[in-house]
Amino acid sequence: MSLAVDIRAQRGTFTLDVAFECPAGGRVAILGRNGSGKTSLVHAIAGLLPIESGSIRFGEETWLDSENRIFVAPPGRSIGVLFQELRLFPHLTVLDNIMFGLRARGIAPREAKAEAEKWLQEVGLSDRAKLLPTTLSGGEAQRVALVRAMATRPQILLLDEPLASIDQELRAPTLLLIRNLVREYEGTVLLVTHDPDLASSFVDRYILLENGRIRGQGPVSDLEA
């Protein structure tokens, strides 16, 4: 199912005005400097940003259509978001953080727990299950946030600066881990980053944002030229 976005949103003096399509299962990087509107775009697709006008469609589903006053709230969109600031729930254990989405989607506690444990094992954090997120290292918290976003098996995965909070020496292994997880994942991936090198390592197309508008797009091989 392809994602078609065509939106205009005003935030203070900043205007986001973008239109693009992303094929089913596509891996697209959203590039741009800080303040270019990358995060706003992610939040718009997730349903977390008020949109003045435009539409967001995913396959047959309409998530937003300002003309027909259609707005589907985030729970009604099949998305998983890795937030730049992670947003792990501080009062829940690592396991409960991952279980949260599964439970919200109606999966029974026992099944949700087994599923969450599997995800933790996948990222090598089984021994952290009972800990609170504040006790984790930056890299560990990052992995928990990633599998929390993936655990509900969303059809679109939005990764907002996945290496932003990672120390330099941990970037390479974290990147490898994310890449392995994403490789097995069948949905659409939008990767937000200001780092073209990171983008070229696991996406096939890119969109370049500048001041809330698209300044360029194409196959990621163009970036190397």
Binding site: A46, A73, P75, R87, F89, G101, R148
Partner: peptide, 18 residues
């Protein structure tokens, strides 16, 4: 409280009451 957590919970499928 961090309002961002509400948004995160919503993207995970939680509605207002949850």
């Amino acid at each position: 409280l961090d309002p961002g957590l509400d948004g995160a919970a919503a993207t995970l499928g939680a509605r207002d009451f949850r």
